[in-house]
Amino acid sequence: MLDAVLAEALKLRRHRATWMMVWIYPIVITAIIACVLVYGAFKAHAPGAAEPAAEWIREGTILWNVPTSAPGRFLTAGFTAVVFAGEYGWNTWKLIIPARARWQLIAAKWVVALGFLILAYVAADLISLLGSWLGSFQGDSIPAGVTLAGVLEAHWHAGVQALVPVVYTIAFAGLFAILTQSILATVILSIALVVIEGLWPLIGLFLHQYVPALIEGLVKVLPFYHLANLHAWSKGAGLALPLGPGAIISFSWGMSFAVVSAWILAALAGTQLRFLRQDLN
């Protein structure tokens, strides 16, 4: 299994898709930080109001909102499409299948796709923190009360909260790739999934007046509301979704996490089962 992961990582680490959709995060952050520091070196600095330590730490974790945003998830889905569906376009499955068990090949792709993305996010986050520290020498001093432990804890929590939508996106993009065997179709289906997720509250509200029982059941079972609820809980309070008079959907963090996890596991199982039965000769 380790050999399969290493081989997959070696194949993808310098791929153009990896540069454009994964390594792009630390590259862009580095460019932005460099521009800000150069601008700050020639700018006259006036003393400003002291910023609360908690607010300064919170603002430092904003970068972790990018992977959970729609554009960030589109990039994740696009990279996953290349990782999984690319083998069909390159016609390379038949070359690597005899050397490995099929389940190992799929598992290796999951590990590498998620591992590369996490590595890119963490690198971008560390570069952002380094930029904030260097900026403190140009007049934007770090507020009193900011501690290394507090910064690490805040960034750890932000990173963990970002993992759920990232893993969910990888799981379903991988499933679409195995089902369609096409990079383009995988990207289109993944974008549609993210768009439907964002529109789901409006769709539920509109359809509830016609088939209330069905819509309430779908909202509770499908992952769309629960992903939004997990995001809301990460901000401090859950999402209460009013569908109509006396019909308000509200779940705890644990219940929504269980529902989303079940859908992720179902997508992973579906991917493996379909791939095991595919004729790739």
Score class of each variant (00 low, 15 high):
98 P>F: 06
100 R>C: 06
104 Q>I: 01
105 L>E: 04
106 I>K: 01
109 K>Q: 10
109 K>M: 08
111 V>T: 13
111 V>I: 15
114 L>V: 11
114 L>T: 05
115 G>N: 09
117 L>H: 06
119 L>S: 10
120 A>F: 12
121 Y>R: 06
121 Y>Q: 04
121 Y>W: 15
126 L>S: 05
126 L>F: 13
126 L>A: 15
127 I>C: 03
128 S>P: 04
131 G>F: 12
132 S>P: 00
133 W>F: 15
138 Q>L: 13
139 G>R: 12
140 D>Q: 15
141 S>C: 02
142 I>C: 04
144 A>Y: 00
146 V>P: 06
147 T>Y: 01
147 T>K: 03
148 L>A: 14
150 G>M: 13
153 E>Q: 13
153 E>G: 07
154 A>R: 06
156 W>F: 15
157 H>Q: 14
158 A>L: 09
160 V>S: 00
163 L>T: 02
163 L>P: 02
163 L>Q: 04
164 V>K: 04
165 P>T: 09
166 V>A: 03
167 V>F: 02
169 T>K: 08
173 A>L: 12
173 A>M: 11
178 I>N: 03
179 L>G: 00
183 I>V: 15
183 I>A: 03
184 L>P: 00
184 L>A: 14
184 L>C: 02
186 T>Y: 12
187 V>H: 08
190 S>E: 06
191 I>G: 02
192 A>Q: 02
193 L>F: 14
